[in-house]
Structure formats: structure tokens, C-alpha cells
Amino acid sequence: MKTKTTILLVLVSTFTFAQTVRDSITFDPQKQQNAAQSILSGNYGKSVIVGAYGELTYNQPESKNGELDVQRLVLLFGYKFNDKTQFVTEVEFEHVEEVYIEQAFVNYSLASNVSLRGGLMLVPFGIINEFHEPTTFNGVERPSVDNVIVPTTWREIGFGIAGRFNNLSLGYQAYVFNGFKSTSFDGQGGVNGVLKGSNALRGGRQKGIQSTIDSPTLSVKFDYYGFPGLRLGLSGYFGDTQADDDVEDIDGANIGISMVGLDMRYAYQRFTARGQYVYGSLSGTDSYNDLTGNDLGSALQGWYLEGAYNLLPTSKQQRLFAFVRYEQYDTHAETAGLLTRNDAYNRNDLTTGLSYHIAPGVVFKGDYQFRNNALSGSKVDNRLNFGIGVWF
């Protein structure tokens, strides 16, 4: 009995003292870390590290009932095997009823400027897909560009390298992943297509769930941080979609994807700004639509600009940001074959509100969104949002 008690006390002590404080009120983009980076750099000689982030939201569309939601709660775990080898995982609970593994990868440090990584990882594209902890961005909801164009949270299984060259002020990542799933056999002689015009590639995310792969894809990102307070990113994603064995040889079962993105983050005293532009070219969509009956566009693009100002003195630990963000996103930027462009897919949002960081890792948010699209006579409901976000 004594032996069991001693073991239990050791485990509890290890779990307790291995936790680290994450200061999410670091708005200098050159010093910001996401959850995985924080785990990898935060062991401080301990073997186990734990943490979590989560957000509760209230969305009130104009003239409709509001919705309250525990949108997500993510549990973070890391383990340090030795000075070179670490494991990182995130277990996500969505809407109190769905459970996903958001990340699960091994990081092996070959040298100070290069690490090998393998497992379920975030695809390094844009800002929000890697930095989506609720205390790191303004607005109750993530930007629509990072939902419809970049299908955040976008993660797949793969391997590759990551690191930085501080003498060049350059960070880099390069991975080989499985791709989006495009089609499957419906069991009745037909083909199901999961990619469509309204949200483009989002339905094809495989998320590490018995993922189909027949042709790997390439993902690369470079970050430049050579000017004080400024961080610039260049992302690329290239490859073909994946289809089940029963349909992969049918004409139109797969499409080709080439996506590039530019992003910018800047901070100076009480002012912060960020922006992003994404363009994606999809090949073979005419055959894909003929096969599936869907309306997938042959090009998608989106961009946004955001500015924020801290209304509290910099001497205060708390921050109160007033912000405004304008974004435009179009999943029918181009269409192929006989498909007619749908102007309802050419959308824009204007979001303005407040982010009140009451302590490192705790934020209260409120905003109002003016939403529109290019379809004549169409009406999109504006929306009022409130939220609470935590990260530790």
C-alpha cells in the first residue's frame, strides 16, 4: 500500500510542477508562440507539461435566435524524452459532444536550427491555422478567410522539417502530408463528392481519421522577422486530392490544388495590425463537377486587413483592444466548364469590437459583424457576438 501511495504522489507532483505559465498577452508577433511551440520550449527541465485553451461563444444573427456554445476545449500535453526528443498532442472537445485529436507529433532536434517532425500536425498556412488560441486574435469568431478559404483548423498526418536561421531572421517549415479527400463510392454505383462551391476544400479535411492517401502533398512556409515588431509569412500548398480505391481511376475523381498565401503581423507600442491574402488554383474541377454534380470553383481567393489599438496605458498588465477588420473572400473567383459563377459565394465581412484581456491568458470579447455578398437582392444576416477565451 505504501508503495502505491508513493508512486501516486510522485505522479501528482510531476503533473503539478511541470505546468508552465503561458503569457498570451505578448502581442509582439516576433515573440508570440502557439500552443505547440509553447510546449516544445516550455519544459524547463521537466518531463511532462500540460495546459489547455478553450472558448465559450454567443452568436446572435439579426432577426434570429441566438446560440450559446462551448465551442471548443482543447487539452494540451507534452512529454520530453530527452534533450532532443519531445512529443506534443492536443485533444479537442467541440460543442461538448465531439472529440478530435488536433495534433499528435514527435519533434526531434537535429541541431539548434533544424528539427524533424512526424505525426498529426497543423498545416502551416497563413496566421490563424497555426495561431488559433482564442487569446491570440481579435474577434469572437476566427476570420472568415480562415474558415472558408484556409479551412482552419487544418491538420493532417505527415513528416518534415522545421527551424529557423536567426542570422537571416528566417523561420521555415516543410512537410509532406496526405491531401484532402475529394470523392468516395456511395455503395450504390454512384460517387459522393465532398468538395463544393460554398466552402471549397473544407469538407475534404481528413483530420487523421483513417486518412486515405495515394499521392502526398507538399506544404511549405517561411517567416521573416528582420524588422522590429514585424513578421511576414509566405505559405504554399501543392498536390492532388485523394479518392477511395473504388473511384480513384474514374475521370474527375481527383483535382489538383496549388495555393499560395501572404501574411503580415505588426505591433508598435499600443497599435497592432495584421493582414492576409490567399489565392488557390484548382485544376480538373469541370470533370469533378460532372462526376459529382457539385459546383466547385476553379479558383478561390480571400484577403483581410485588421487594425487594433490598446485603450489602456502600456504600464497596465491588462489590455483593452478596439479593433476593426475588413475581409473579402470568394470561392467562385473563377469557374470552369459549364459552371456559372455564383455571386453569393463572393462575400465580405466588416467586424468591429473590443478584446479585453483581464489577465495573461483570459480574454472577454464582443463584436458586431456587417456581412454581405455580391448577389443582387441577397440579404445576409448581420451578427452580434460575445465570447470568453482562456489559454494556459
Results as ranks from 00 to 15, higher is better:
residue 71 Q to S: 14
residue 72 R to I: 04
residue 72 R to V: 07
residue 72 R to M: 03
residue 72 R to Q: 13
residue 72 R to A: 10
residue 73 L to N: 12
residue 74 V to D: 09
residue 74 V to G: 02
residue 75 L to H: 11
residue 75 L to A: 10
residue 76 L to R: 07
residue 76 L to I: 14
residue 77 F to M: 12
residue 77 F to K: 05
residue 77 F to D: 03
residue 78 G to M: 13
residue 78 G to A: 11
residue 79 Y to K: 01
residue 79 Y to H: 07
residue 79 Y to P: 01
residue 80 K to P: 00
residue 80 K to G: 05
residue 81 F to R: 09
residue 82 N to F: 06
residue 83 D to E: 13
residue 83 D to A: 11
residue 83 D to V: 08
residue 83 D to L: 01
residue 83 D to S: 14
residue 84 K to E: 13
residue 85 T to S: 06
residue 85 T to I: 14
residue 86 Q to W: 04
residue 86 Q to H: 08
residue 87 F to L: 13
residue 87 F to R: 06
residue 87 F to Q: 02
residue 87 F to N: 03
residue 88 V to P: 02
residue 88 V to R: 04
residue 89 T to R: 07
residue 89 T to V: 01
residue 89 T to Y: 07
residue 89 T to C: 04
residue 89 T to G: 12
residue 90 E to I: 05
residue 90 E to K: 02
residue 90 E to Y: 05
residue 90 E to S: 08
residue 90 E to Q: 10
residue 91 V to W: 14
residue 91 V to T: 08
residue 91 V to I: 15
residue 92 E to N: 12
residue 92 E to W: 07
residue 93 F to A: 12
residue 93 F to K: 09
residue 94 E to S: 13
residue 95 H to Y: 11
residue 96 V to P: 03
residue 96 V to N: 08
residue 96 V to M: 15
residue 96 V to I: 14
residue 96 V to W: 09
residue 96 V to Y: 13
residue 97 E to A: 12
residue 97 E to R: 14
residue 97 E to M: 03
residue 98 E to N: 14
residue 99 V to Q: 09
residue 99 V to I: 14
residue 99 V to W: 10
residue 99 V to E: 10
residue 99 V to S: 11
residue 100 Y to H: 08
residue 100 Y to R: 12
residue 100 Y to V: 01
residue 101 I to R: 02
residue 101 I to K: 00
residue 102 E to I: 01
residue 102 E to D: 15
residue 102 E to L: 00
residue 103 Q to P: 02
residue 103 Q to I: 09
residue 103 Q to S: 10
residue 103 Q to C: 07
residue 103 Q to G: 05
residue 104 A to E: 07
residue 104 A to S: 15
residue 104 A to M: 06
residue 104 A to L: 10
residue 104 A to R: 07
residue 105 F to V: 00
residue 105 F to P: 12
residue 105 F to H: 03
residue 105 F to Y: 15
residue 106 V to K: 04
residue 107 N to T: 10
residue 107 N to M: 04
residue 108 Y to P: 02
residue 108 Y to N: 11
residue 108 Y to F: 15
residue 108 Y to C: 00
residue 109 S to P: 03
residue 110 L to S: 08
residue 110 L to T: 09
residue 110 L to R: 06
residue 110 L to F: 15
residue 110 L to W: 15
residue 111 A to H: 11
residue 111 A to R: 13
residue 111 A to E: 14
residue 111 A to Y: 11
residue 112 S to Y: 13
residue 112 S to M: 10
residue 113 N to I: 07
residue 113 N to M: 09
residue 113 N to Y: 10
residue 114 V to D: 06
residue 114 V to I: 15
residue 114 V to E: 11
residue 115 S to P: 05
residue 115 S to Q: 12
residue 116 L to C: 08
residue 116 L to E: 02
residue 116 L to N: 00
residue 117 R to N: 04
residue 117 R to E: 13
residue 117 R to D: 00
residue 118 G to Q: 10
residue 119 G to E: 06
residue 119 G to N: 03
residue 121 M to P: 00
residue 122 L to Q: 05
residue 123 V to P: 02
residue 123 V to M: 09
residue 123 V to S: 05
residue 125 F to Y: 06
residue 125 F to I: 15
residue 125 F to D: 03
residue 125 F to T: 14
residue 125 F to S: 01
residue 126 G to H: 01
residue 126 G to K: 04
residue 127 I to F: 08
residue 127 I to K: 07
residue 128 I to D: 06
residue 129 N to M: 10
residue 129 N to W: 13
residue 129 N to G: 00
residue 129 N to R: 12
residue 130 E to M: 14
residue 130 E to W: 13
residue 130 E to D: 13
